[in-house]
Design a protein around this nucleic acid. Structure first.
Lengths: 315, 315
DNA sequence: CAACGTTACGCTCTTCGTAAAGATG
DNA sequence: CATCTTTACGAAGAGCGTAACGTTG
């Protein structure tokens, strides 16, 4: 059994069961792929691929299990490279962060700049992605960190991926300065119902949070605009079309708008960092996490990754 | 980077940094070991071994990290063999269970027989070991399962090893039939203080449990014999030397003795099964666990291994 | 017949063992 | 000088690419 065989198996899976395409991805010849897989099958004594008339139509049950194992193994092989790069010093490295609009545009702007300053040789890569794709990106190792908005209770930690809950996200109601509500010191949910409401798509975490709060209070707070990101909400509010609720961080320095803190009106949401448990925690990674979420020190992160069951409450 | 290089690195570690000895363990020549390690070092760009004047004196920091990674990888390579054996059907396999005296002698006797009946081709191997060695045996993969007595609160789950808490272990006070206490229907801790007490070594889980209960009740219940196993306790009781507390399972069919249930007098202890989270759960493994601890079905085990953080209580 | 997988053949580079040299306590 | 590691050299073998063949939609 060789690593190359495992790589080829993975490549076949990624190429959609097309051996020819897989061969290209690994810079080898197509017959070689066929041969190596056969060799692997012979060695371990089971068929990995289901073949129908010289076509590959799928993985066998065992094949799928071996593939899964191969992916784990290859990831760990790759982390040996990380370990080495880390041990060499020199401060080189690479960090791929997948995140949603809000954090890409606001939350992470400063951590990004600070990381670049502290670790100038680290290649920083930000992937803005749909929030529903984040778990997969992290799980598959396409991103090192996933940063998203999470609600308080649901920790989506799994055996492979851990989620660190960070700072609570402050929210503000925003409106034009001349808006009637702008005169109020503090706000209630009921206040909002008297004006057109600009909010998030209710399927998003932020939108669901607002819908939940409204439902619990028994009031009707459906947005007339269901935005995907806060910039859209702000634009509509700036055009005088209503009142909006956005993370406070989005409106710093926006002098045309009046903002009233509204964090207390809703269930808390947090800046969550998710990462593979087997990720090798180079110093710049823990640095970045702490910059994005100060309460997570390097040692706290390590503890969270290596002692998952420690979260069980003691009565 | 080849698997062989990782195997050699591990062998060097296991051989106590002796390359010559390591070469023997992998049936290869000693120069080859030296060469392969050098090749690996060259490829990843760091030194793995600290050399002083042509002697290997230790691992570098990076080397230790790579070694750890190598051990993980090689274990996972080996589980590919398990997957294949499982997929081949045929019912062949191997199960190494490490456990303490009590479970070896009593608890597991029946599960063992039943597993042998259900999976006759599975090679069963029981290692009776000191309880303090069990975690290491499981951690290092020298045993597939570790079965031990655990107290109720402490779950020794870690990132690599999970512990499944099983049935509560029933305890009985035992004495000769003609003993004064034998007349009583039920027992209190205080009753025990009037007679010589035969018990476990207070450093064992069972002994500590009894000592804790005595201390909490403010009574003196130090054993005149500190046994390591229940058979010794029973022998002393049978010779009329005092009263003992043993797991009820130990005295089934012992007609010379009178037993009174005493489970309620002490903090509950359980039959705990510990296993590596990355253990490939072949059907006979989950069968065995369930035979030893009926509440753990195959799916419950899988859940416990793959969703460790699910133990976090919801408020 | 176009696309894909398998078989056949021959080359090359890697890997290994033996032998010898170097280093150290 | 006994033990352990490194270097040198030559042989065996694994892995690969090209080319040809087989199969199917």
């Amino acid at each position: 059994m060789t690593l190359q065989q495992l790589r080829l198996l993975r490549a076949i899976s990624r190429a959609g069961l097309n051996i020819s395409a897989a061969s290209g991805a690994l810079n080898t010849s197509q017959p070689n792929v066929s041969r190596q897989i056969k060799a692997l099958e012979a060695e371990i004594g089971i068929e990995l691929l289901m073949r129908k008339k010289n076509r590959i139509v799928g993985f066998t049950t065992g094949g799928r299990a071996v593939l899964q194992q191969a992916e784990r193994i290859l990831r760990q092989i790759e982390t040996i490279g990380d370990i080495a790069q880390d041990a060499r010093g020199g401060g080189e490295g690479r960090l791929i962060v997948a995140t949603s609009h809000l954090h890409a545009r606001y939350t992470l702007l400063d951590p990004f700049a600070r990381l670049r300053e502290k670790h100038p040789k680290v290649e920083l890569l930000l992937i803005q992605a749909d929030i529903k794709d984040l778990p997969r990106l992290v799980q598959d190792g396409e991103a090192d960190l996933g940063i998203s908005t999470g609600d308080a209770q649901a920790t989506r930690s799994s055996a492979e991926v851990a989620t660190l809950k960070g700072e609570v996200i402050k929210r503000s109601a925003i409106m034009l300065r001349q808006h009637p509500l702008a005169a109020k010191k503090s706000l209630s949910l009921a206040d909002l119902t008297h004006y057109p409401f600009i909010g998030y798509n209710p399927r998003s975490v932020g939108g669901r949070m607002i819908a939940d709060a409204a439902q619990k209070a028994g009031i009707d707070l459906r947005p007339i605009v269901q935005a995907e990101d806060s910039d859209v909400i702000r634009a509509y509010v700036e055009h005088g079309l209503g009142v909006g609720i956005v993370p406070t961080v989005c409106i710093a320095g926006k002098t045309r708008l009046h903002a009233i803190d509204a964090t207390h009106l809703f269930a808390a949401t947090t800046v969550d960092v998710s990462l593979r448990r087997d990720l090798y925690l180079r110093s710049y990674i823990t640095d970045f996490i702490q910059m994005a979420s100060p309460k997570w020190s390097a040692s706290a992160i390590k503890r969270a990754l290596t002692a998952p069951a420690a979260k069980a409450r003691k009565s």
